[in-house]
Amino acid sequence: MQSEISKEQMQQAVWRELGVSPWFRMDQARIDAFADVTEDHQFIHVDPIRAAQTDFGGTVAHGMLTLSMMSGMAYGALPKVAEAKASVNYGFDGVRFIAPVHAGKRIRGRFTLTEAKLRGRGDLMTTFAATVEIEGGPRPALKADWLVLYLF
């Protein structure tokens, strides 16, 4: 069950880690499905034999697939904001793809609230320092400053 936090508590939680997601496996089937949906069939993602001949040593997930997994990660990690009618992905102020995610590896997200400001009619604009970790890896897959707008 997802925990709940008030708008006021959210504003007071700046610079606190608010959640860590469960692990998600980035298997070849997920990578292939993403390639089909996005029409991005670059061989380093979908051809294990050719990809094995590169410095990657095998297939790797698309950076954009790893980034898109953050929505599901956040849903499993972040508290629900009480009385919010909806939360909206407002975009990114910065995204850096740091390390490749090899097929078969597991990833998870960490979310630290870095800003929470009221806007207009009382909506809450938040920014999260988001990191996607690779299980057992020395470096994260990506880091991003993610804006999420909570509508009231």
Rank of each mutant, 00 (worst) to 15 (best):
D32M: 00
D32E: 03
A33P: 01
F34H: 01
F34Q: 00
A35K: 00
A35M: 01
V37F: 01
T38F: 00
E39Y: 12
D40F: 05
H41R: 14
H41Y: 11
D47H: 06
P48K: 06
P48R: 05
R50H: 05
A51P: 02
Q53D: 15
T54Q: 10
D55N: 09
D55K: 14
F56W: 12
F56C: 10
G57P: 03
T59W: 07
V60Q: 12
V60L: 13
H62Q: 11
G63E: 07
G63C: 11
T66L: 03
T66S: 14
L67N: 06
S68G: 13
S68V: 06
M70D: 02
M70V: 15
S71P: 09
S71G: 13
S71M: 11
G72L: 07
G72T: 11
G72H: 10
M73D: 06
M73P: 09
A74L: 10
G76K: 11
A77H: 06
K80T: 14
K80G: 05
K80Y: 12
V81S: 05
V81L: 14
E83H: 11
E83Q: 14
A84N: 11
A86C: 11
A86K: 12
A86M: 15
V88W: 05
Y90M: 03
Y90F: 11
Y90E: 02
G91I: 07
F92A: 03
F92D: 01
D93C: 03
G94A: 06
V95H: 04
V95T: 03
V95F: 08
R96Q: 13
F97S: 10
I98F: 05
A99L: 07
V101A: 02
V101H: 08
H102T: 09
A103P: 00
A103N: 03
G104E: 05
K105E: 13
I107C: 05
G109Q: 11
G109M: 07
R110D: 00
F111N: 01
T112H: 00
L113E: 06
L113W: 09
L113Y: 09
T114C: 02
A116Q: 09
A116F: 11
A116K: 11
K117W: 06
K117A: 15
L118V: 10
L118D: 14
L118G: 13
R119C: 02
R119K: 15
R121I: 12
R121D: 09
R121T: 12
R121G: 15
G122P: 03
L124K: 12
L124F: 08
T126R: 10
T127F: 06
T127Q: 12
T127I: 06
T127K: 14
T127D: 02
T131L: 14
V132C: 10
V132W: 12
E135Y: 02
G136T: 08
G137K: 08
G137N: 07
G137V: 04
P138D: 15
P138E: 15
P138M: 07
P140W: 10
L142N: 10
A144V: 14
D145Q: 15
W146C: 01
W146Q: 01
W146T: 00
L147W: 06
L147S: 06
L147K: 15
